[in-house]
C-alpha cells in the first residue's frame, strides 16, 4: 500500500541518514539536509532517527493515500491541509502527526520561512535500499508510489521543538585547510553579507556577494571535502551541501560547524546569510550540546507518541 505522488512540488526526494562509510569509493554521504527536522517528523510517528522520509523543497505539492497512513510533517513551515474530493477537510499546523485516510490527499503550499519540510510515515517509506540506505537524489515524479505500512496516529503537536530560530541565518564557521591562502579571507567572510543564489541545491548553496579574490594555484590537487565546506569558486563562495561530491578542487577556505549544518539546509534562494568565526573547542562544544538537546527532544516526543502513551 502506498502514498501516490500527485504533484511533487518544487522538487522532492526520499532521504534517510545517508551512506556513511562509502566516501572513499566516491559515494556521497547524502541524507536529509536538515537531519533534525527529518528526525522530528520520524519521532512524531514513533520512528527511530534515520528512517526514510520525503524531503520537500520550497513548495510541498500534493499526495494521495491508498490506505490509511500514520504521517507527520516537520521542518520549514508550509501551509498544509487534508483534502477530500477537492474540499478541505482539515488544516494542519506543522510540526504535527496526523492520519491520512484512504482516498484523501495531503496538500502543502510554499514555505513561509526556510526551505525544506519532511514527510514521515510510521516505520518509514519502504523504497528500495542501495548500500544500506534509501537516500536517492532522483526527484519524485507525478504517479510515483511511496510504499508505506497502513496505520493511524492521533494529531500530536509538540511544544518546544525548535533547536534554532528559523529566521537566524548566521552560520558559525571554522577556518578551512586553505584559509592561509590569504590573510584577508576569513575577515572578508566574517564581515560580508551574502545572498543565497537561485541555483542552489542539495549539492551546493551558491552565495552572491562582494567578490573575494585569491591567487589561484593551477597545480592544486583535489582534496577530500564534506558538507559545510566553503569553497571559493572563481570569486564567489559555494557552501557544499549534504549531497556534495567526495573531493573538491577549489580552495576550501572555511567550514560550517556541524551544529549549524541543519540550518544550512533551510537557507532559501534570496536569503541573506552571514558568518561568524569560532574556534575548534567552541565548535566541538556546540556540536556536543546540540546533539544532546536533539536526543532529549526526540526521545520525549517518541515516548509521548507511543500508541496508548
Amino acid at each position: 500500500m502506498s502514498l501516490i505522488v500527485i504533484d511533487p512540488g518544487q522538487c522532492a526526494t526520499v532521504q534517510d541518514a545517508g551512506r556513511p562509510g562509502y566516501l572513499r569509493f566516491g559515494v556521497p554521504r547524502g541524507g536529509a539536509f536538515d537531519a533534525f527536522s527529518a528526525d522530528l517528523a520520524n519521532a512524531l510517528v514513533g520512528n527511530p532517527a534515520g528512517r526514510a522520509v520525503v524531503e520537500l523543497t520550497l513548495r510541498g505539492g500534493e499526495f494521495e493515500a491508498e490506505c490509511p497512513l500514520a504521517l507527520a510533517i516537520a521542518g520549514a513551515p508550509m501551509p498544509a491541509m487534508v483534502v477530500e474530493a477537492g474540499t478541505i477537510v482539515r488544516s494542519l499546523d506543522p510540526p504535527t502527526s496526523f492520519t491520512l485516510a484512504a482516498g484523501r490527499r495531503l496538500r502543502l503550499g510554499r514555505a513561509s520561512c526556510g526551505l525544506r519540510t519532511y514527510l514521515a510515515v510510521r516505520q518509514g517509506w519502504q523504497t528500495p535500499r542501495v548500500l544500506d540506505s534509501r537516500s536517492r537524489e532522483t526527484f519524485l515524479r507525478p504517479g510515483d508510489r511511496l510504499p508505506g505500512e497502513p496505520g493511524v496516529v492521533p494529531i500530536h503537536r509538540p511544544r518546544e521543538v525548535s533547536l534554532t530560530e528559523p529566521s537566524d541565518r548566521r552560520l558559525r564557521v571554522l577556518p578551512g585547510p586553505d584559509a592561509g591562502l590569504g590573510s584577508y579571507l576569513l575577515e572578508s567572510l566574517a564581515n560580508g553579507v551574502f545572498r543565497v543564489g537561485l541555483h542552489s541545491n542539495r549539492v551546493g548553496v551558491r552565495l552572491a556577494g562582494s567578490p573575494i579574490v585569491v591567487a589561484g594555484d593551477p597545480s592544486r590537487l583535489s582534496s577530500p571535502v564534506a558538507p559545510g565546506a566553503i569553497q571559493l569558486a572563481g570569486e564567489q563562495l559555494i557552501v557544499l551541501g549534504v549531497a556534495c561530491g567526495t573531493m573538491g578542487g577549489y580552495p576550501h577556505v572555511a567550514q560550517v560547524v556541524t551544529a549549524d549544518l541543519d540550518r544550512l539546509g533551510q537557507l532559501a534562494p534570496g536569503d541573506d546569510v552571514s558568518f561568524e568565526l569560532v574556534d575548534l573547542d567552541q565548535a566541538r562544544a556546540l556540536d556536543r550540546e546540540r546533539s544532546r538537546q536533539a536526543r532529549a527532544i526526540l526521545a520525549r516526543i517518541r515516548s509521548a507518541t507511543r500508541p496508548g502513551g
Binding site: 586553505d178 591562502l181 590569504g182 594555484d217 597545480s219 582534496s223 564534506a226 567550514q255 560547524v257 556540536d287
Partner: peptide
C-alpha cells in the same frame, strides 16, 4: 604567500601534518 596546498619539493622522510577539517574530521597532509 606560498599556497599551502602545494607540497614542498623535497619531502620529509615520513612526516605529515594533521589539521582539523571542521569539527568532526581530520586532514593529514
Amino acid at each position: 604567500m606560498e599556497p599551502t596546498s602545494s607540497a614542498p619539493d623535497t619531502p620529509p622522510t615520513e612526516g605529515f601534518e594533521l589539521i582539523a577539517l571542521g569539527d568532526r574530521a581530520f586532514l593529514a597532509r
